[in-house]
Every structure is written in C-alpha cells, then in structure tokens.
Write a protein that binds this DNA or RNA. Structure first.
Lengths: 177, 177
DNA sequence: TAAGATACCGAACATATTGTACAGTAATTT
DNA sequence: AAATTACTGTACAATATGTTCGGTATCTTA
C-alpha cells in the first residue's frame, strides 16, 4: 500500500480516536475529523464512504484484535469461559477512552453489535451440549445480551472494578445454566 | 388547553406515529413530520424543541400509560412479577408498529432508556429482601438489562410468541435469584 | 533518473436539514 | 366586539453532507 495512503488513513484513525476521547460519536462531524487529521475533504471521502463506515472499520479492527486467537482454543468449560470474558474486558480497558466516546452515544449500538457477533460464537460453543426448557436462540441471546449489559454497567462505573471481578459477577448471575 | 393546540399536537403525534410504521426514527426528518401533519414549520417548533423531544414525549406517554397502576399494587413474589412482565409485553404488542420504527434505530436507546427506568422500580421491589454475593446494583442492572434484551429479541422475532410465553422464558433463565 | 501513475489539496458547488423570524390571518376567549 | 392567542408560510442564516475537478506533490517502475 502506498505510503501516502497509509499515512492519511493513520491520521484519520488517530484524529477520530482523539475526538472520541472528548466527544460522543454522534456529535463528531466529518469536518471535525478532517480538521484534526489535517487532510482535504475529498481525501476523507476517498478513504471512507461515510462516518459510519469509519466507525465500522474501527470496530472491526478492535474486535479482530481482541477475538483473534481467543476462540480457536476454547475448551468449553465454565472456568475457561470466565477467564476469556475477563480477557475481553482487559482489552476494553486498554482502549478505555475510545470506548467511552463510542458507547456513550446512541450509535453505541454499532459497537455493541460487533461485540454481540463475536460473543455469539463464544457462547454458542459454551452452550453446545446443553438441554434447556427455553428455545436455544433465546438462551443464546440472553447470555450475549446479559454480558453486553455487564460491559455497559462496567463502563458506566468508569471501569473501576478489575475485569476478573466483573467476569466473576457475571458468571455468578448466570450460574445455573 | 386551546382546541387548536390540541389539534395540532394530535396531528403531529399521529403523523409521527404513521411515519414510524414505515421508517426508522433516525431517518424521519422534521420536514417529513410537518408535511404529513400538514402544519407550518414554525408551528412544529412552538410545540417541540427538537425531534428528540417529540420522541421523548411519545415515550413518556407510552410508559406513563403502561406503568400506570402497574407498580402500586405489586406484591413482590415471583408469579406476580411474571404476570406483570407479560402485561408489559401485551402493551407493547398493542403499539407494535410504532415499536418497530422506534426500536429498529440507533436511537432505540431512548425508548430502552425509559423502559429501564420503569423496570428499575419494578425489579427493585422484587429484589428488596434478597441477599446476594454480587453488588445489588449489578444484579439490578443485570435483571433490567436482561429483560430489555428479551424485549428486543421478541421484537426482532416479529413478536410471534405470546407475551406469556416470553415472560415465561425470561423467568426461567433468571430463576435462581 | 526520468516518466507515468497515483494520491492529495483545496476550493467550489449542489443539496439537505435545522432552527429562527416575522408579518398576516384565523380561531378562541373574555 | 375586542383582545388574546395560535397557526400560516415564506424567507433566512447556519451547518453538514457528499461530489467534482484542475492543479500539485509524491511515489513507483522502467
């Protein structure tokens, strides 16, 4: 890839990331981004169709990074699940400031959407050999959704508790399944 | 209240409601609303500061209606909770078409926000005399969040299952607390 | 290192939406 | 019947979006 392209992309991501530390996603304009990235208007649009597409790529990168080798080696038992969830939370803690800007907005759904997609795979394996009295997709949706709510709760609490503790809480409330 | 004001408000609500049946909230513009309601632009703004304020009022009305005498008489036991949750779902079913337009958008959070507010009261009573090993606010958040996820799941499934069944599922998965 | 390809610049433009202002008209209240 | 209040509709400023295009800088490759 052309060094110039790489540089502009980097500067856009960087600017976006910085803006997310102090602004909610929905209030950030393309103008803000190109000002901070110090690039031409048309340049932005050759790289990204819309602001949403930019966010989408950012989310994609984040989750590609987090769930990289997370899933392949999953053993499927409870302890393993718990440590993996804690691990995910650790990654979120790393990009704490961006997460605030992304989540604290109506469009936090986009981020949560990606999270759910990835969690689905994880929990699907966890539930593989379970018999239940409720529909399987309801149960899956419940577990994934509950963990997302846990994440949001944690973020709203400024991520004060250690990831392990939060994962602990979560496992405790869903324990019976 | 002046008959004219009442009429205009009604026509705005009606137009908004109709638009929600075929469009997502975020894609509806003030222009769309005043066209459909057949009122002047300035008239809209004398009634509502922004589109969000309109949605807010609509949500407020919906939940004022649903949770009216719902809470005062709450007995606090499991069966009672279940039937109340089912009752809430019945109300949602009544305004099915609007719900789709509201929920199927990034700003569904506003609606969900109201739902959570009201559910908080309900579940707080339910949890009043519980001892747990996880923080009380985590547990409360978990229950409220899980029910919201249940609602979303149900809506995404076109509300096919009867409300009682869905409430049943929900009680089943949170049963241990 | 010269030539061609590619990416960026920046300014201009069309379009859409928002929210405000104001003078005129109609309905309602007292 | 007079005074108040609400609606109309047009116009306007402000902001944001997404596109276009000629010119310039930077890369690649032959």
């Amino acid at each position: 890839m052309d060094r110039r392209q790489k540089k502009t992309r980097e500067s856009i991501f960087k600017a976006f990331s910085l803006l997310l530390e102090t602004n909610r996603y929905e209030h950030i304009t393309v103008q803000d981004i190109i000002d901070k990235a110090d690039i031409g208007r048309s340049t932005f649009y050759t790289h990204f169709e819309t602001k949403d597409m930019l966010l989408k790529e950012v989310c994609h990168d984040i989750f590609a990074h987090i769930f990289d080798n997370e899933l392949c080696s999953y053993k499927g038992d409870k302890n393993d699940l718990q440590s993996r969830l804690a691990h995910i939370l650790w990654h979120f803690k790393e990009i704490e400031k961006e997460i605030f800007g992304i989540l604290a907005s109506a469009s936090g759904d986009l981020f949560i959407g990606y999270l759910k997609e990835n969690l689905n795979l994880l929990f699907k394996m966890y539930l593989a050999d379970f018999k239940t009295d409720v529909p399987a997709d309801f149960l899956l949706n419940y577990l994934v959704g509950s963990f997302c709510e846990t994440v949001k709760w944690w973020v709203n609490n400024k991520m004060t508790e250690p990831p392990e503790t939060v994962a602990n809480y979560f496992m405790a409330v869903i324990e019976t399944h």
